[in-house]
Design a protein around this nucleic acid. Structure first.
Lengths: 213, 213
DNA sequence: CATTGTATGATTGTCAACAATTGGCAATCA
DNA sequence: TGATTGCCAATTGTTGACAATCATACAATG
């Protein structure tokens, strides 16, 4: 149910801007409006749908500002998760991370942007699962959904330099394994500062422009 | 509707552990199950309710681990929000912050823990509203709800030293106004590190103990 | 006495119909 | 032409009834 809608959003059957009506969709899916309604609320909560009462829900447009809002949170969650994981790191965890990086690198080498994105998500899924921080994991699940929208729209820019994405993750794995927390932290913060700085630029002009649910 | 339930949870009419049934509550509130159901989902999303299908929803018990999970996220959101606010700080914002600190100090001086908590929430509401980061603001709204549960249960410990809470906020306001970002950042990170360290201790023993929705 | 099967009641999941609200459009008037 | 008002259709909000599911208690069996 929920996944059916998500799938429609992700695959692009639902493009940003077009209206989705509870009744229409419930007929299409062959269920009543109740479950559809619930799914709508959940998707809206995750930022995959914008509810506009009596005007139909729409798939949101992800602006560059939105992208940096997401990134600015992800840099933090990544940092905290890595810290927690690093503390009781096992061989199995390391293996999972390395495997994800391997896949990512293979995808990058054949210029397969969706493949890189997929491996990126897998890497993060593992990261937050291992971290053992329930609220952090939930937070990631929510942001992940928005990442789908993001890569769909900004694949060219976000994954402009596929090798840069790969190297970022490779560096992280290397630092987890061989370096101390202080060093890993320095690396992550340099990254975060870059993101935050860009966010500040984007936030300046249109400071109070509400749109979301 | 939603607020009616929240209010029941906060004021303690609903204690951690006792079951809340959709049908029962809908009768009590004089509405049908539909709206109640929606509110349940929303509260569950925010962590104020744990849904256990066919066994009744319950108000969750907030363990010390939960508390530090919340704190570890709040230290970050606070840091990012402060950075964004500091960049285009206005006199009105500063005034709002100072007023909140004033209230907080007054409450602390008469030993009024709930009063301190209230002013704390007001301070944060203002902070995230001013930051202009939509997703960060949403994140705060979610955590705020859990803070209600938290203070209800841990008021003695969390607000053990009321003056410490006051001074924390006073320091922040002072640093926003008179110091640079680097200095404010050092202060915040020292705080965050303390929280993270404690979280690591708590996460160690019961690493994989799921309970939440 | 432990274990498994079964009946039963409680609770949630789903549905279709109805009520309330709203946005947009057409008719009207300046 | 441009603005205003009233109406209508589309959409969401709510309801009560029904179906499905699950937990629990109890009985039957080894």
């Amino acid at each position: 149910m929920r996944d059916a809608i998500i799938e429609a959003v992700i695959t692009g059957r639902l493009a940003p801007g077009d209206r989705v009506i509870e009744a229409t969709l419930s007929r299409e899916l062959g269920v009543s409006r109740g479950p559809v309604r619930e799914a709508f609320r959940e998707l809206a909560e995750q930022g995959l749908l914008v509810l506009a009462p009596h005007r139909g829900a729409t798939v949101p447009l992800v602006t560059e500002r939105d992208a940096y809002e997401i990134y600015s949170i992800l840099t933090f969650t990544e940092r905290l998760a890595l810290r927690l994981v690093k503390e009781h790191l096992s061989g199995a965890m390391l293996g999972t991370f390395k495997e994800a990086v391997r896949e990512m690198r293979a995808a990058a080498e054949r210029g397969d942007a969706p493949g890189v994105a997929h491996a990126d998500l897998a890497f993060n899924d593992a990261l937050y699962a291992f971290a053992g921080h329930r609220r952090l994991a939930r937070l990631w699940q929510g942001l992940k959904a928005q990442c789908y929208l993001l890569v769909r729209e900004y694949a060219p820019r976000t994954y402009a330099s596929l090798s840069a994405v790969v190297e970022h993750h490779a560096t992280i794995v290397d630092l987890i394994e061989h370096a101390g927390w202080a060093e890993l932290r320095r690396y992550l913060e340099a990254n975060a500062d870059r993101v935050d700085a860009r966010l500040l630029e984007l936030l300046g002009p249109a400071d109070a422009a509400p749109r979301e649910a």
